[in-house]
Each structure stands twice: as C-alpha cells, then as structure tokens.
C-alpha cells in the first residue's frame, strides 16, 4: 500500500516541458480520414466495386423483361425486386473484402503503420479512418442501388426504413469485421487480394447472386441463413418488402461482427 501512495503524487506532467495533447492532435484524426478519403478517390477500385458495378448490374437486370414478371415463387414480387438487396450487399462485400483490407495490408508492408507507431498518433487511427471511409462508400453504394431501383425501375419503396437502416448497419459491421480479420492475417497485399476474391464468390453465391434465395433448395437456404451475406439479403429483403426484419438474420450478422471483430483485434499486427 505504501508503494501505491508514493506512486500517486508523481505525475510526470509539470517538471517536463513536454506539451500535453492539444488542438493540433484534435485535427489529426480529421487529417488521417482526409488522406484515406483522398487515397480511396485516387485508387477508385473501391468506388467501382462498391458503387459503380452494382449499379451497372442493377440497370442491366432492370432492362431484362423477364425480371419484371411477378412470380408466386418470389411472394408475388419480381425477380428484379429480389436482386435489389443482393446487389446492395454485393457492393458492401466488395468493399469489406477488398477495399478495406488491401490498403491496410499495403500500409503494413510499406512500414506506414510502423512509422506511425513512433508518432503521437497511434496506427489504429489509420484502421479506424479506413473503416470510416469505406463505411461511407458502402452506405453510398447501398443508397444508390435502392434509389435507382425504386426511382428508375419501379421497385417497391422500403416497407420499413428503420429496419433497412438497421439491416444495412449490421451488414456493414459484420462484413467489415471479416475484412479486418483478413487484413490481420494476410501477410502481403497479394495474399489479401487473393483471399478477398476467393471469399467473395462463395459468399455472393449464398447471397443468391446466381440463384436467388427464393429458388434455393431448403438445405442451401439453411446454409445461406447462417452466412453473412445470406443473412444480410434476408434482413434487407424483409425490410424492403414486408416490414421490420426478423431477429435471426440481424443476430447472425451481429455475431459475425463480434466474433470476427474480436479475432481481428487479437491477430492484428502493426509491423
């Protein structure tokens, strides 16, 4: 106990002329975000995969006459309606599996994160800034897909806006956690690229990109419900067409966010 009382009155602040974190530090996070945003703009793979590509696919699907028929298998909706959430998650998955991890792994390769650990700014700020910027692009992608679908192609407006916002939020959280784990374990940017692409296709399969969930046999649907993109499509589709989504897909996505986020945090190496 004595030792503890001695410890207390030795704050290192006054005798040293080292300044406390001040106004400059407060603008630092803004600068880090600004630079990540610039880099995202200058290397627009994320913008193309996260916004442009899903919108182009949406427009193509919107022009197909067969996609406009109302079918009993789709609960009276059209195939096009079924593809709106699929293409919305397509963009999120692109950003989470490629747009987010590749720059982070590249920074580690270049020594950017190591260099930052010698400044007053922790390298985790870059990670946070990346997630924030890619998150904004993901939201922009989802919003664009839905607005174009509703305005240009007459898809039904979201039945539950709150449900949609919640679904998109947990989708981004769950998928970004997976992307961060990828960034944590991939040693090189090439490896991150390969792992990201290889993960993307099976996840998109269970989202229903090639075979919409309404047409999947029961065993595939059962698997799909527990995959991140299957759950995401399920939650978004419900929000778009019926109302507030059921708890199951939201909990599945939240589970991915927590488990993968935890693993990413544990495994992440800064150099």
């Amino acid at each position: 106990m004595n030792t503890l009382t001695i410890a207390r009155p030795t704050p290192l602040s006054e005798p040293l002329s080292v300044p406390r974190p001040g106004p400059a530090r407060r603008t630092a996070f803004g600068q880090v975000v600004l630079n990540e945003a610039r880099l995202t703009w200058r290397r627009p793979i994320g913008l193309i995969g996260g916004i442009a590509l899903p919108v182009v696919l949406l427009v193509i699907f919107g022009e197909l006459p067969s996609f406009k028929e109302h079918l009993a298998a789709f609960g009276g909706g059209t195939i096009f309606d079924a593809y709106v959430p699929i293409l919305a998650t397509f963009g999120v998955a692109m950003l989470a599996l490629l747009g987010l991890p590749i720059p982070l792994v590249t920074y580690r390769e270049l020594g950017v994160l190591r260099r930052l650990s010698t400044t007053p700014v922790p390298p985790s700020w870059v990670l946070a800034a990346q997630a924030a910027v890619q998150g904004c692009v993901a939201v922009a992608g989802v919003v664009t897909v839905i607005v174009v679908a509703v305005v240009a192609f007459g898809a039904s407006a979201p039945a539950s806006l709150a449900g949609l916002v919640l679904s998109v939020t947990v989708t981004i959280a769950g998928l970004f956690a997976i992307g961060l784990l990828l960034a944590a374990v991939a040693r090189t940017s090439t490896a991150a690229n390969v792992i990201g692409r290889v993960t993307f296709f099976p996840l998109m399969f269970f989202a229903g990109l090639w075979l919409p969930r309404a047409l999947m046999p029961q065993f595939l649907l059962d698997i799909s419900n527990y995959t991140p993109l299957g759950a995401a499509v399920q939650a978004m589709q419900a929000s778009m067409q019926t109302g507030f989504p059921p708890a199951a897909p939201l909990l599945v996505l939240a589970g991915y966010a927590v488990v993968f986020g935890y693993l990413a945090r544990r495994c992440f190496r800064w150099e």
Binding site: P19, R20, P21, G22, P23, A24, R25, T27, A28, G30, Q31, V32, N35, R38, L39, R42, R43, P103, T106, Y107, L110, V112, T119, P120, V121
Partner: peptide, 18 residues
C-alpha cells in the same frame, strides 16, 4: 502510400504534433 502528394504527407504528419 504511392498516391499521396508530398505536401499532403507533410501536412498529415504536421497535424500529429502540438
């Protein structure tokens, strides 16, 4: 990062210090 300008990198690191 390859696509940051010299001035931007300097401004970034400048913002870290008081």
């Amino acid at each position: 990062p390859a696509k940051l300008r010299v001035g931007e990198i300097l401004d970034l690191y400048r913002s870290f210090y008081r």
